[in-house]
Amino acid sequence: MTQFAPEALTDFCTAALVAGGVRQQVAMSVAASLVYADVRGVESHGILRLPIYLRRVREGMVDVVREPAVVQDRGATALVDGGNNFGAYVGQKALDLAIERARHYGVATVGVCRSNHFGTAAYFAEQAAAAGLIAVIVSNASQTMPPTGGVRPFLGTNPLAIAAPTGGPTPFLLDMATSQVARGKIIAAARRGEAIPEGWAIDAAGQPTRDAEAGLAGAVLPLGGAKGYGLSMAIDILAGVLTGAGYGPHVRNMYEDWGNPQDVGHSFILIDITAFMPLSIFLARMQDYVELLKAEPRAPGIPEILFAGEYEHRLAQGRRETGIFLVPAVVGELSELAADLAVPMPYPIDLVDLRNGRAAAGA
């Protein structure tokens, strides 16, 4: 694997998107979202998505010019038409609006229609927590998961993120797909030529498989059986049915459908903590909660009890210092992209140079 500085990858992503016809402001939002995912160890939503994002632009499946617009507004609620722009950019606009409204009204719900894949929901949820808010953020996705009892994809892996500040450096940040695993992890395994664990997916005939390619041709399985299926459908209602976006099979697959926009929907539900109590009191209560959790008896061999988002936060801190590792297949795709767009590929970094603050920013 090859190691790169996060800043160099962000600059490269931005430059590649701009070279592909994307406005600077939009490109920066998308690049920040992709590299954020890699830094947190969620490679399935990271820079490996850049080639397909750019292909969607070339094929006219993403409108990188049109600005998101508020089309329904009742103060504490608003509906944003994403204009078929990149999901990360549309999502950022919707989040900013939701933060503003939540601070004014105490609670806000901003729905989004006519959007695209918006990366990892944690990217938005962490920003809300940093602003002193509690966030519930959901998005639907193209059909990759069967309903319980079915054998063919109908629902997306429809992610859910819930975040809250803790008073410490690490927010509570639950970020999960409603499938056993995000489909992007199976894509990543296929690119590495690795088998996938039992229970992740079924093949096109509905049979369990450990073959990543067969799993991609079939379907990923719901988390916890009927519970994951039910949660995925609930998110589809909030993000798709309610907002006027696509839902179920009406959300288009960005890897396979080259004749229609994705029409992904999102919902951002934010709560201003100060509508319930002073923020300082809430943070003190959260610190007490975390301390009680950490003091719980541990199972043999477990050095520490972690809460949701803590592992990823620590991983991100490390990767910001030591860099991000990319597998050869992804490096190869990015190199081809760089050559096609005449954008310099970032240099791999030397660990010693990075620690000394001399990481190469790019060729």
Rank of each mutant, 00 (worst) to 15 (best):
268 F>I: 04
262 Q>K: 13
104 H>G: 11
261 P>G: 03
316 A>D: 03
145 M>Y: 02
289 Y>E: 15
305 I>C: 03
98 A>M: 09
362 G>D: 05
128 A>T: 07
276 F>M: 09
334 L>A: 01
259 G>S: 14
55 R>Y: 09
145 M>L: 02
265 G>C: 03
346 P>V: 00
285 R>T: 06
92 Q>P: 13
128 A>F: 05
1 M>I: 07
353 D>N: 15
103 R>M: 06
322 T>E: 11
325 F>E: 13
5 A>F: 03
144 T>W: 01
325 F>C: 09
161 A>L: 07
345 M>A: 02
262 Q>E: 15
186 I>P: 02
52 I>V: 12
271 I>C: 13
38 D>T: 04
166 T>F: 05
260 N>D: 12
313 H>P: 14
282 F>Y: 08
178 T>D: 08
302 I>D: 01
210 R>P: 08
147 P>N: 11
60 G>S: 13
41 G>R: 12
124 F>P: 13
161 A>K: 15
255 Y>D: 11
59 E>V: 12
78 A>K: 10
221 L>T: 01
276 F>K: 14
132 G>Q: 07
97 L>C: 10
23 R>M: 00
357 G>C: 05
40 R>W: 04
290 V>C: 11
106 G>H: 10
100 E>A: 11
350 D>N: 15
301 G>T: 01
327 V>R: 09
228 G>Q: 08
227 K>P: 14
120 T>R: 15
66 R>C: 03
305 I>Y: 02
336 E>Y: 03
114 R>C: 02
208 P>S: 15
141 A>N: 05
334 L>H: 07
290 V>F: 12
256 E>A: 11
161 A>Q: 13
40 R>N: 09
355 R>E: 10
102 A>N: 08
162 I>E: 05
279 L>P: 07
68 P>S: 08
58 R>P: 12
68 P>Y: 04
15 A>I: 00
326 L>Y: 07
252 R>Y: 10
163 A>M: 11
58 R>H: 13
320 R>Y: 06
299 A>L: 06
253 N>M: 04
228 G>T: 03
134 I>Q: 12
116 N>A: 11
32 A>Q: 14
273 I>Q: 05
34 L>F: 02
107 V>D: 06
246 G>T: 02
166 T>A: 05
166 T>H: 11
